[in-house]
Design a protein around this nucleic acid. Structure first.
Length: 137
DNA sequence: GCCAACGTTGGC
DNA sequence: GCCAACGTTGGC
């Protein structure tokens, strides 16, 4: 199993929206690196759900429910989407500030490549972040 | 709301 | 193929 981190602006699509909506199409990615990460996702992979701009914190874990398929929002074969659903909400959100102040997490792409919206996370980092979020992954 | 970082586009 | 111009992201 692989682990990921997905960014979303909560005023566009928040964790609560994901919970409400159930399985949701993760579309609109227009960046090759992020796209390649989407393509590497498998059903059952786990993804941390991060609120960018507002909150700037990891709020929960989502599960990949469908591997990649052509992005339905654009007529261009280059871009793909996946389907995700909410799995578990963090008891306490883990803020970007906290992550930056945690030496073990200094190499997270979230810190080093702040503009990447879909990124891989190692199993070790994933488990640590879940622990910091107050839940067992 | 500003702006730095960075990705993309297009002229040459 | 280079690079200037431009657009977008996201932290602050």
């Amino acid at each position: 199993m692989n682990y990921w981190l997905l960014k979303s602006e909560p005023d566009v699509f928040s964790w609560d929206d994901l919970v409400k909506k159930g399985p949701s199409v993760w579309d609109g990615v227009r960046n090759y690196q992020a796209r390649n990460n989407l393509k590497a996702m498998k059903k059952g992979d786990k993804a941390l759900f991060y609120h960018s701009n507002i909150g700037r914190e990891i709020v929960g874990i989502a599960t990949i429910t469908k591997p990649f398929f052509p992005d339905p929002t654009i007529d261009d074969e280059r871009w793909v989407a996946v389907e995700v659903k909410a799995q578990k909400k963090f008891k306490n959100a883990v803020t970007l500030d906290t992550i930056k102040n945690t030496p073990a997490l200094a190499k997270l792409p979230l810190v080093t490549h702040s503009r990447l919206s879909v990124m891989p996370v190692s199993e070790l980092d994933f488990v640590l972040l879940c622990d910091m979020g107050g839940i067992v992954s």
